[in-house]
Design a protein around this nucleic acid. Structure first.
Length: 825
RNA sequence: GCCCGGGUGGCGGAAUGGUAGACGCUCGGCCCUCAAAAGGCCGUGUCCUUCGGGGCGUGUGGGUUCGAGUCCCACCCCGGGUACCA
């Protein structure tokens, strides 16, 4: 056995060549077949440099699923492409002057090479990059389809601006007041920009979460992001200026407790209201200061409340009281109407403000206990609390009061029930170069004119200078910008902003269904055949951004008649991050593990198996070089045993009709492993325990060979063929090779093995004997022993007897096939 | 603060309310070898032991149960998300 060595450097390229030459993983659309489909998709990679360890992990998971589905008789679509537009390549271009297309295409070559070396079972005929005109032509087509439906529109709004990247950002791309990409503090600017009307879909995006099998925490994150809250809009009138100010509140039941009124510093009317009052100067100063504060400074909840009176009052619509108006930075312009009714008795923020400014605190909801909390607002409002000091509504429960007050307001024309969302429309335009051009022409005569479909794609032109200057670098490409208006033929200019790259990745899974179609983005037949994605796999960092945008696109495209599905991804799996020495891998820490190095030193199978063996894939894990060695030893051992057994007695790898010596145990263990691996991969992603089961089977085979002198060569061959067959989804090259050596057949053409349950039950079983719940003995018993027999065995067991003798037996619990528990006093 | 995860040997991790620690790593001993590498075999939670066994052990404290890592209550710690959203 020492003369054959496991050599992944020889094995892996040999099988990769077979799969490539024969296009083994290619699937054809419209194949006449009775097999069900399975669309297994890993999130589109952004090609930059070389693939990192996270890519290795996610493709190891995806490929295991794809192989498992194939061998269970499904037609599997497992495509690959690249999210090729984006800022890193553009920033690189600014630094080096090299066209981002060049560095991007170089990175794509590296990625493609790595995926081939890893032996990932991809249908390469469907490959594309989102930066290719043949792809983004259809990105533009979708944009226009949405534009025509009013789902893409331009408006001036307060938008987030990253001063470093010199571009606007979507709300979702601002984390803690900082740019998601570069970490710079974002500014707010008033600009005209392009938006997608994702808010129209807020309710469907929320409700349909119930129809998809996603991790609960991802759904929760989306629910929170959408932030639906039911409440009422209530109109407070400023009589002096004769202006109505609507506010949104989730607590109309507390309306009688509104003792003042607060506006956000950004509210357009603030300065106008204060004009001519004694507070004018103070308000001006306060607003200026607030607007210059960073999001971080302003956003601190623990900060003491600040604000200034406006010197005006509004009328509380339920009781006609005149209540004073304030400007304060705890009110946000982005949410609701930018103004709130303040109910200090029942809102903690209003309470703090009222205490600081000595404003009245009027209790209108009484706790069931009768006791108001000291020094804080009382915020409960269940059916147990009653309204007090609330005019005709006094005595109602808080819940009833809510409805009654809203109905009353509605009748008076002073308010109505409404729903408010945290979700904002998706700002999609970017003042950057390396992205998909927005196919719109600005004509002085006709306004916004869509580029006609037959003129698509609008090709991204080459420019001299990629550096951002607060407007898109495309503006400098004058030959390109100046264009005849498609409508009137007059002189006009192209839109020079490009699209957020999340637009590109919001529909790529549709294009995979029909990747070379030149007539349409996809054919109805193709998307009908493959959509939805059955299993989507990727990082949890996309829980909101990509996963929300893609869902929106699919719903909008369905409404436009281009799709039949409501949701793009029926099941989602999110993998955890791989760390090294307990920390995120990064160049600055110097703790980066390169997949290329591991593949070079140990082979792709070792790398893939290790990363799956390390622990449950949805959790994070720390990389250990010693662990890699262990997995490599296991693969080497299995392969060596397979090669040795293949050269020895027996034939193929079929199960023997009769067994000899240890052979029975080998067959039994084989079926045990089939059952275990199948269960671990059905509806679960328990690859770590699946691989452990194959290790156990291999250990049993090794024992038969090394210790028992191989008493049953045919059973050994069967066990080893089974081990290779089960290992194939994780270590495809080594398993294909071992299986082929043993059987002469191709493991991927074999159906997934079926466990013969008859082998999972044995004639005798070990029964645990407990006394008072503590294990005291173990005895062998016939599998079909009766409860009475088991009790007798328990009492006969010597060590159990030692703990029972001389004491009173109170109770005996028998779990058939498992244990007997004797309870004594 | 709120919402999710998670806390099990020296380490990564296994365990439908029924033998805690599968599998792997590490470490130790032995075999093979002139020697080493590779490979093979055995041991490896902890303390006590007359070597038969016994005590203690799954973040902490309670509870349910014949029996709890697993279920319930309270709390502590770690990771992630989110946060003046009216």
């Amino acid at each position: 056995m020492t003369d054959v060595r496991y050599d992944p450097k020889e094995i892996e390229p040999r099988w990769q060549k077979v799969w490539e030459d024969e296009q083994t993983w290619h699937v054809e659309n419209g194949e006449a077949t009775d097999r069900d489909k399975s669309y297994v998709l890993v999130m589109l990679p952004y090609p930059s440099g070389e693939p990192h360890i996270g890519h290795l992990k996610v493709y190891s998971v995806g490929d295991a699923v794809a192989h498992f589905h194939r061998r269970n008789g499904l037609r599997v679509l497992n495509p690959m492409g690249y999210d090729a537009f984006g800022l890193p390549a553009e920033n690189h271009a600014i630094k080096t002057g090299q066209h981002p297309r060049v560095s991007t295409d170089e990175a794509i070559i590296e990625f493609r090479k790595a995926f081939r070396e890893w032996g990932v079972s991809i249908d390469w005929s469907r490959e594309f990059g989102t930066h290719e005109p043949r792809y983004y032509r259809w990105t533009q087509w979708i944009f226009l389809a949405l534009y025509e439906r009013g789902l893409a529109y331009r408006k001036e709004a307060a938008v987030k601006w990253c001063p470093n990247d010199q571009t606007v950002l979507a709300n979702e791309q601002v984390i803690d007041g900082r740019c998601e990409r570069c970490g710079w503090e974002v500014e707010v600017k008033q600009l005209e920009q392009w938006f997608f009307r994702i808010t129209d879909y807020a309710d469907r995006l929320l409700d349909d979460l119930d129809t998809i099998e996603w991790p609960e925490h991802v759904k929760t994150m989306q629910r929170n992001w959408i932030g639906r809250s039911e409440g009422a809009e209530v109109i407070f009138r400023c009589d002096e200026l004769a202006i109505d100010y609507p506010v949104f509140t989730t607590r109309p039941d507390t309306l009688f407790g509104a003792t003042f009124f607060v506006m956000a510093p950004e509210h357009p009317d603030v300065l106008r209201l204060a004009e001519g009052t004694e507070h004018e100067e103070e308000v001006r100063a306060y607003v200026n200061r607030a607007l210059n504060e960073t999001a971080e400074e302003r956003g601190d909840v623990d900060k003491e409340k600040t604000g200034v009176p406006l010197g005006r009052t509004v009328t509380n619509p339920v009781n006609g009281e005149q209540i004073p108006m304030f400007v304060a930075d705890y009110v946000l312009m982005e949410y609701g109407t930018g103004a709130v009714m303040a109910v200090p008795a029942h809102d903690q923020r209003d309470y703090e403000f009222a205490v600081k400014f000595g404003l009245p605190i009027q209790q209108v909801v009484a706790p069931a206990s009768g006791e108001m909390p000291e020094g804080e607002a009382f915020v409960e409002h269940s059916a147990d609390e009653r309204l007090v000091n609330s005019g005709d509504f006094t005595g109602l429960s808080a819940a009833e009061g809510k409805d009654a007050i809203v109905s009353w307001l509605d009748r008076q024309g002073k308010g109505h029930q409404t729903v408010q969302y945290r979700l904002r429309d998706w700002l999609l335009s970017r003042q950057r170069y390396w992205g998909c051009p927005i196919p719109i022409v600005h004509c002085p005569a006709c306004g916004l004119v869509p580029v006609p479909e037959e003129d698509l794609p609008v090709i991204l032109p080459d420019v001299e200078d990629y550096a951002p200057k607060g407007r898109s670098p495309l503006a400098a490409a004058e030959d390109w910008v100046n264009v005849a208006c498609p409508s009137c033929g007059g002189a006009a200019k192209r839109e020079t902003d490009t699209m957020d790259t999340f637009v590109d990745s919001s529909w790529y899974f549709l294009r995979y269904c029909d990747p070379v179609n030149e007539e349409a983005a996809w054919s109805q037949d193709a998307v009908h055949e493959w959509m939805p994605v059955d299993q989507y796999i990727g990082g949890v960092e996309h829980a909101i951004l990509h996963l929300m945008y893609a869902r929106f696109f699919v719903k909008a495209l369905k409404d436009l008649g281009h799709l039949e599905v409501d949701e793009p991804f029926a099941k989602l799996f999110t993998q955890g991050m791989i760390t090294k020495d307990g920390a995120k891998m990064s160049k600055s820490r110097g703790n980066v593990v390169s997949p290329a190095d591991i593949v070079a030193s140990h082979g792709a199978d070792t790398a893939r198996c290790y990363i799956l063996f390390i622990g449950p894939p949805d959790q994070g894990a720390d990389w250990s070089d010693e662990g890699v060695e262990g997995v490599h030893r296991f693969l080497a051992r299995l392969w060596r045993l397979s090669a040795t057994a293949a050269a020895g007695e027996g034939s193929a790898g079929d199960q023997p009709e009769t067994t000899h010596g240890f052979g029975e145990e080998l067959v039994r263990k084989s079926h045990w492993a089939i059952e275990k691996v199948t269960n671990d991969m059905t509806g679960r992603f328990a690859f770590n325990t699946a691989i452990a089961a194959v290790m156990e089977l291999t250990n049993t085979a090794s024992k038969a060979f090394n210790e028992m002198g191989n008493p049953d060569p045919q059973a050994l061959r069967f066990a080893l063929a089974t081990a290779n067959s089960l290992l194939f989804p994780f270590a495809p090259h080594a398993a294909a090779d071992g299986y082929h050596l043993l059987t002469g057949r191709r493991v991927w053409e074999e159906p997934w093995p079926a466990a013969d349950l008859a082998y999972l039950v044995s004639d005798t079983i070990e029964v645990v004997i407990q006394v008072n719940g503590k294990v005291r003995d173990r005895v062998q018993a016939p599998a079909d022993a009766s409860a009475e027999d088991l009790k007798a065995l328990a009492h006969a067991a010597p060590n159990a007897r030692a703990h029972v003798d001389g004491r009173e037996v109170v109770k005996e619990i028998v779990v058939p096939g498992k244990l007997v528990n004797i309870v004594v006093r």
